[in-house]
Design a protein around this nucleic acid. Structure first.
Length: 853
RNA sequence: GCGGGUGUGGCGGAAUGGUAGACGCAGAGCACUCAAAAUGCUCCGCCGCAAGGCGUGCGAGUUCGAGUCUCGCCACCCGCACCA
């Protein structure tokens, strides 16, 4: 064989790795451990280039750490519950399990040819009863620990499909599938008490030094801590039992500019009025018709209803403010009631103008003229950033210049001293509703008994398996209409009772799978010694789209698992380091139909800007995330069969920094393949060389040492594109080297070792051709001889007034005074100086010389 | 609106405050070939015949020296958002 043939060598070396069991993770007290994990895939049926990139990145880490002497855990599993399986069952019949496990088999078969260093013996799917049964056990422990509770919550309800919809399934206020008007409905649902951990989850972000700053910020904003004042207005003319209205404000410093109070349509007072006044009922009903989605709220007009009730200002009992019910007040943030200060809040100002309310300024810009600055007719409210200093003119009896922050502090202090309210910290983060009225999820292991109420299942009855004989021909949850599944004796009293038919949000499944990988076959959720050894995940790798929910839920779950004894204390932050990779993009090709509508075409159907079949010119839209609807996708399996896995891996690692998007191009893939073929041919040639010395031995040894040093640093810092560039350079150097056979063979061995994390099959093949012995995957990472990393002489650029005009070659450790002499003697320098003496001469040893004239 | 990020050749991208454009793609030329493909070699920021000049979104500043640091703009991208 004298040609690079990935189709032959790749399966061969994969078989060799499997035979040697090199990727089986073992607890080894002799070696440090390293746990590298890529976010596990949803089994949609096909792998895509995003997967290839994700797993290629993780594989570089895993293989590099293996070579560096670590005992590595690098597992793979499937995030297997969820709606697509049910939708498939509804659309084409069949069972979600069949669809899901079929997809898993397909995807595994597509993934294995990539030659990833996965320990497949630990594989599981979250829809395996062995997995979700352990999840049920943890749910029961969390229930006992008070981490789960039930309450009523408003959901988007599709009255035709008789199902709850997620916000993203509500389109223009209608169900995405049925097209029916979505209703807001109250259901009793299960919640995790994640909000108990708001402060901790926020504060602990500071400790996550190896997470992207961006992700930490996104989580911090999501948790949304705010400090403010909570206090009560006393009411005038309110129904009995409503003599006070509690409000929350983050700007207590504007209290002297209050002009109205607004309460949520879901506020107890609003609900009371709704029952007694048909007009209020109509208004509130109108508010509720607005969906819960952001989009709907965004568009909704700000509306208020004057209740006729008044409240007294806490610092001036003669000052009365009207109370409105307003559609933009959220019941579940703060107290569900606010006071409005139109002078210093745009939304309040809009509201005040609409209903003809007072506008009272409390502070003004710092400017020579004093006095209040009322918003101009139609102009904006005056809202200075909190750190800005402004002039305070009406604030609790004190006045002067202060920043908003100082004023807020002072206002809270003053109010507390007067017995009006107290400073409180609020969070945006709400409890995590986990109930889903769906079939294909983990059943919530509780029983509803007429006598005992909600009773936890007994652990010995777990797993509570999903029934297999279900049909999807009718809308709604098949578990509800299954003839027998619900019926079960009450675990407490033994009388006939009914199972909960809700299943868990699939985010629960993915919130602890990383812990399960440490002991995937155990009959408890985790095993202490395995969790102790393998946790934490040293390097987690995935898309930034999971920056908030998945990662936040996992951080909460790790804490909950620690509290219930399933994880050690050190694992409450389960991911030591996080890397978020960019997307794989591709240009989009389209033609137009007769009506001018776009018709998209697969890249493989296009050549030189024309359709291969018809020759029609295509429009090219700039690169975007690969998506089926735009057809700008390339199938990894096609690439592997054309070029081999090593080429696919090499290319996705080579062109862009891993955190940025990488554009897939046919020419880039071909270039990657060409390069690997060159390396292979080079290896083949060098393997056939006789030993012996040559004139270039020393230079080659230095180049090799530098490459080891730089490639190692690049891999350590995720700069894989730069590592690839270094490896190209080393290949070029080696190909042109006039070193002897012994040195060339040694250099080639190092080259394939350095490439092994990225192109393992190619490396393995050349390694064996070189007669290096054993498997390269098990060879220790090469070390650079420090003596070879420094050159004896260096080329110093010489600048004149900051512009490079000459260079001189000097011994590395020549004293600066000597260097100065050499510079001033240089003919280019002499010419530029034109006989004038330099004003100043700066010598940066080993780097540069600057002559100032 | 709030928060964050990014702007470097035709393109992807390199550059601890120290030779801007490594490495690759695309392009051009040459060799090999009857020819093409493949392969190898060479060139390749812009203006200029050249000498030289100009160049990292725009404008200032700090510095012997700025893609890099500071200030002010501009453009694009991402996340969050009736959160009181």
């Amino acid at each position: 064989m004298s040609r690079y043939a990935p189709a032959e060598i790749e399966p061969k070396w994969q078989a060799a790795w499997e035979a040697a069991g090199v990727f089986a993770a073992r607890r080894d007290p002799e070696r440090p451990k390293y746990y590298v994990l890529e976010m596990f895939p949803y089994p949609s049926g096909r792998i895509h280039m995003g997967h290839v990139r994700n797993y290629a990145l993780g594989d570089v880490v895993a293989r590099y750490k293996m070579a560096s002497g670590f005992s590595v855990l690098h597992p793979m599993g499937w995030d297997a519950f969820g709606m697509p399986a049910e939708n498939a069952a509804m659309e084409r019949g069949g069972h979600p399990a069949e669809w899901t496990y079929g997809n898993i088999a397909d995807m595994r078969a597509q993934m294995k040819p990539l030659g990833l260093s996965i320990d497949w013996s630990r594989e599981f799917a979250t829809c395996d009863p062995e997995y979700y049964g352990q999840q049920q056990a943890m749910f029961l422990d969390m229930l006992e620990a008070g981490l789960v509770y039930r309450k009523n919550a408003v959901v988007n309800w599709d009255p035709v499909d008789m199902t709850v919809l997620a916000n993203e399934q509500v389109i223009d206020g209608k169900g995405w599938r049925s097209g029916a008007e979505v209703e807001r409905k109250e259901l009793t649902q299960w919640f995790f008490r994640i909000s108990d951990y708001s402060g901790e989850l926020l504060d602990a972000l500071d400790g996550l030094k190896d997470w992207p700053e961006k992700v930490r910020l996104m989580q911090a904003n999501w948790i949304g801590r705010s400090r403010g004042l909570e206090f009560a207005f006393s009411t005038v003319g309110a129904p009995e039992g409503f003599d006070r209205i509690e409000v929350y404000t983050t700007r207590p410093d504007t209290l002297m500019g209050a002009s109205f109070v607004a309460i949520s349509p879901d506020h107890p007072l609003a609900k009371h009025l709704e029952r007694h006044d048909p007009e209020v009922a109509a208004f509130v009903a109108d508010c509720r018709r607005t969906g819960t989605s952001e989009e709907a709220l965004e568009r909704a007009e700000k509306k208020g209803w004057d209740t006729g009730i008044r409240v007294r200002h806490p610092f001036d009992t003669a000052w009365e403010l009207p109370v409105y019910i307003a559609n933009f007040i959220l019941m579940d943030y703060g107290t569900g009631a606010i006071f409005g200060c139109p002078a210093h809040d745009q939304r309040d100002l809009d509201f005040a103008r609409k209903y003809g309310l007072e506008v009272v300024s409390t502070f003004a810009p710092l400017s020579p003229e004093e006095g209040f600055v009322l918003p101009e007719e139609g102009g904006p409210a005056f809202v200075p950033p909190k750190p800005d200093r402004v002039r305070w003119l009406r604030a609790f009896g004190w006045a002067g210049e202060a920043t908003g922050e100082e004023a807020i502090d002072a206002a809270i202090g003053f109010c507390e001293s007067q017995g009006v309210g107290r400073g409180v910290t609020n969070y945006r983060l709400r409890d995590w509703g986990l109930s889903r009225q769906r079939y294909w999820g983990c059943p919530i292991p509780v029983v509803h008994c007429a006598d005992c109420g909600v009773v936890p299942e007994k652990k010995e009855n777990l797993p509570i398996r999903l029934p297999e004989d279900v049909s999807f021909d009718k809308p709604g949850n098949p578990l509800d209409r299954h003839p027998a599944w619900r019926n079960t004796p009450c675990p407490r009293c033994g009388k006939p009772a009914l199972r909960e038919t809700d299943t868990m949000d699939t985010f629960v499944d993915s919130s602890w799978y990383f812990a399960r990988f440490t002991a995937p076959r155990a009959d408890t959720p985790t095993v202490a010694e395995d969790a102790d050894y393998w946790m934490n995940v040293d390097q987690y790798i995935g898309g930034v789209e999971h920056a908030i929910l998945h990662l936040l839920y996992s951080r909460f779950f790790a804490r909950a698992m620690h509290k219930t004894g399933h994880l050690p204390a050190k694992a409450i932050e389960p991911f030591d380091a996080l890397f978020t990779q960019g997307m794989v993009t591709h240009e989009i090709y389209l033609t137009r139909d007769a009506a001018g509508r776009p018709v998209y075409h697969l890249p493989e159907e296009v050549e030189d800007g024309r359709l291969k079949v018809t020759g029609a010119a295509v429009e090219v839209i700039p690169s975007a995330k690969m998506s089926k609807s735009k057809k700008n996708v390339v199938d990894p399996s096609d690439i592997i069969s054309r070029f081999g896995a090593d080429t696919a891996r090499w290319f996705v690692l080579s062109d862009s920094p891993p955190e940025r998007d990488v554009e897939w191009t046919a020419s880039g893939a071909e270039a990657a393949h060409r390069h690997l073929a060159r390396v292979w041919a080079l290896g083949d040639r060098i393997a056939g060389m006789a030993g012996g010395e040559g004139p270039g031995d020393a230079a080659l040894a230095r180049a090799v040492a530098r490459s080891i040093d730089e490639v190692t640093r690049c891999i350590e810092s995720f700069a894989y594109n730069k590592a690839v560039a270094q490896l190209y350079a080393l290949t070029n150097t080696l190909a042109k080297s006039d070193a002897g056979g012994t040195a060339q063979k040694a250099a080639m061995r190092v080259l394939v070792q350095l490439m092994e994390p990225m192109t393992p099959h190619l490396s393995e093949d050349i390694w064996s051709r070189l007669g290096a012995g054993g498997l390269v995957v098990q060879a220790p990472w090469p070390r650079a001889d420090p003596a070879l990393l420094v050159d004896d002489s260096v080329t110093l650029p010489v600048q004149i007034n900051g512009k490079r005009r000459a260079e001189i070659m000097v011994p590395r450790d020549m004293p600066p005074a000597e260097v100065e002499k050499r510079v001033l003697a240089d003919e280019d320098v002499v010419r530029f100086l034109g006989g004038k003496p330099p004003k100043k001469l700066i010598v940066v040893p080993g780097r540069i010389v600057n002559v100032v004239v």
